[in-house]
């Protein structure tokens, strides 16, 4: 009785602590950026002019850059991650499985600055010479394929982010496939399912975990600062081609924070952090809603 009460209080205290930390964080960010919102209001989010010299700040292209890189990363990473996880859990012989699994986990643990260095040294020149240049010479007449090619840019950042979130999504999905009862997999096979058909049935049954894994991947990609800052090229303009350089919210902050030229510039960067914070919270709410909608079917079942 008494022990249970104390345990309950401890749990309550810890949960309350989380709420307080999130609230303080949001409040601190808002306070640091209030002068920006006082001056520009919603124009800070809607306008595309970023001119520290004249003291005008708008981050619409940066927000767009954040969503674009994440979108590219997810589009590329999700199918590859799902196929890889199925491959590892169902097709790789069990002796090899341990090694491949450790490799995937290792990739998930590599610090992002290492990914950034690899991006600069390998990915940027590779994409520039083998993909972007041929692509431009083939499609130069189409809109969106013009402009200078440096190898740095939003697309490159998206591809690098895809590689970075791949191990996260893969290992969570793989875990879920392996935890799925053998009886369900056998039911599919006994019906005469071909490999891709039983894979589809397996994925249907771990839908929720996949959503959670994607959400985690999105959160990592959306919040990634260092690696993106190293390959995105840094630009406050709306992208005018698929090769264009740009910014994401976190990469803007790391790139300009140390050299902020005025208190207002400084405040604008904190405001960018506030926007990042709000979008990250929204991501969690949206993910919750998706999970709620998906589980409603399951709860109806009970």
């Amino acid at each position: 009785m008494r022990g249970d009460k104390i345990f309950l209080y401890i749990l309550l205290f810890i949960s309350a602590l989380f709420v307080v930390i999130v609230f303080l964080l949001g409040f601190e960010l808002y306070r640091g950026s209030s002068s920006i919102f006082d001056i520009f209001g919603f124009n800070f989010i809607l306008s595309s002019t970023w001119d520290p010299v004249r003291g005008v700040f708008g981050i619409a292209p940066v927000i767009l850059g954040s969503f674009l890189t994440c979108f590219i990363a997810l589009i590329l990473a999700i199918p590859v991650a799902l196929l890889t996880s199925y491959f590892i859990s169902e097709l790789v012989p069990s002796r090899l499985k341990i090694y491949i699994t450790s490799l995937v986990e290792l990739l998930a643990a590599v610090p992002s600055v290492v990914y950034g260095l690899w991006g600069i040294l390998v990915l940027v020149p590779f994409l520039r010479d083998n993909i972007y240049v041929p692509l431009q010479s083939a499609f130069y007449f189409l809109p969106g394929f013009g402009g200078a090619i440096t190898g740095y840019g939003i697309l490159t950042a998206g591809i690098l982010l895809a590689i970075m979130i791949l191990p996260t999504i893969t290992s969570i999905t793989k875990e879920a496939i392996e935890l799925l009862p053998a009886s369900i997999k056998e039911a599919a096979i006994a019906l005469g399912a071909m490999r891709y058909q039983s894979a589809r049935i397996i994925f249907t049954h771990i839908k929720l975990t996949i959503i959670a894994a994607i959400m985690l991947g999105f959160a990592r990609a959306f919040g990634e600062a260092m690696a993106v800052a190293m390959v995105i090229g840094g630009s406050h303009l709306f992208p005018n081609s698929i090769f264009a350089t740009g910014y994401t919210l976190p990469s803007l902050i790391v790139n300009e924070f140390t050299e902020a030229t005025s208190p207002l510039h400084y405040s604008a960067l904190i405001a960018a952090g506030f926007v990042l914070f709000v979008i990250a919270l929204a991501n969690i709410v949206v993910a919750r809603l998706i999970i709620y909608r998906t589980t409603r079917f399951m709860r109806l079942a009970i």
């Binding site: 096979i189 019906l191 005469g192 049954h205 399951m298």
Partner: peptide, 21 residues
């Protein structure tokens, strides 16, 4: 083997309907 399984239906000891369907 896939073709063979399509000529046979199997019912397991423990009922195993697909819970997500």
């Amino acid at each position: 083997p896939v073709e063979i399984r399509r000529h046979m239906g199997m019912v397991f000891q423990k009922p195993n309907p697909f819970p997500m369907l």
